[in-house]
Design a protein around this nucleic acid. Structure first.
Length: 289
DNA sequence: ACACGGACCTGAAGGC
DNA sequence: TGCCTTCAGGTCCGTG
């Protein structure tokens, strides 16, 4: 599932169920995901109230009244579902394998929140609220692309002198936080920039942003905002805690569209797929230069 | 510091 | 029908 728009969609789905509620029962079905669960995880959560549910990059942050923050990451295949007061046996929406329900939170409101993650690339951690931004998860992260600090000047600054590709730069969470393979491909297409250009081409000799940098910043913002408005993208999986599907996948211009005509008006190109740094890049060789 | 490949893990889809 | 390979929305670690 999850790049920034999907994580934000999950956050908005969980927020009404979680904010203000108290953890009553925490069930772990295994000892680890990508990393072990924190020591005494259930004991540290039980009885704690959730003050707010936030997001930084692809991390969900549940602010607790214990001065700790429950940090959650969905990895590649993590998802949450929310059920109102559970009745009898678990209800599993279609496509969900209960074998991979690794964590179950029962809240004071009667809501049950279940974390499912077949590949187990997700994680949960408990981090002190004080100094959260200095924690290794967050210390090196670049700006939030939808925040007001993300701009052409900043992007040009991190791109300066870097010989790697534009594609790899945008996937680097230290440059800008929250993008993944889909939205990098989509943003580069919208900006009319080739994924193979050197990152340093975003800056001129003096380190000032080149024209492409401003277009790219705008393209990133636009594609993320549109995707959030669509509830994220659902590729062979659910995106939302209520079981509903995101529908931004229908608006992809290049991602997973190999062989199809480029949707840029007037462009006669055909979308291609190549492997770049071990991951698929989808692009139009005609209008992305 | 940076750039890159591989590792982590499961499931779906396609070819034979 | 099965078996095999490839691929998938992320990150971390080791190697030059």
């Amino acid at each position: 599932m999850p790049e920034l728009p999907e994580v934000e969609t999950v956050r908005r789905g969980l927020q009404p169920a979680m904010e203000g509620a108290v953890f009553e029962t925490i069930v772990l079905r295994r000892a680890d995901l990508r990393v072990p669960f924190p020591a005494r995880f259930a004991e540290r959560l039980a009885g704690r109230r959730i003050l707010a549910l936030g997001r930084r990059a692809k991390y969900l942050l549940a602010d607790l009244d214990s001065a700790e923050v429950l940090v959650m990451h969905l990895g590649m295949s993590g998802s949450f579902r929310v059920e109102a007061a559970p009745v009898g046996a678990f209800h599993h929406p279609r496509g969900r394998d209960p074998v991979h329900d690794h964590v179950v939170f029962d809240l004071s409101t009667g809501a049950r929140i279940t974390y499912n993650d077949p590949r187990r690339f997700g994680l949960m951690a408990l981090v002190p609220r004080v100094g959260l931004a200095d924690h290794p998860f967050f210390a090196g992260l670049g700006p939030e692309p939808l925040g007001n600090t993300f701009c052409a000047e900043l992007l040009a600054a991190v791109a300066r002198g870097r010989v790697t590709s534009l594609k790899a730069l945008l996937l680097d969470q230290h440059a800008v936080a929250g993008l993944g393979n889909i939205y990098v491909c989509e943003a580069l297409h919208r900006a009319g920039l080739s994924p193979f250009n050197a990152a340093m081409t975003l800056a001129d000799a003096a380190g000032q942003p080149a024209a492409g940098a401003a277009r790219l910043v705008e393209a990133v913002r636009q594609v993320l905002e549109e995707a959030i408005a669509a509830g994220g993208s659902s590729i062979s999986d659910h995106a939302r805690p209520d079981g509903g599907l995101g529908y931004f996948q229908h608006a992809f211009r290049v991602y997973d569209r190999e062989g199809q005509p480029c949707p840029t008006p007037g462009c006669r190109g055909v979308v291609r797929r190549v492997v770049q740094n071990g991951r698929s890049t989808f692009f139009c060789p005609v209008c992305q230069r």
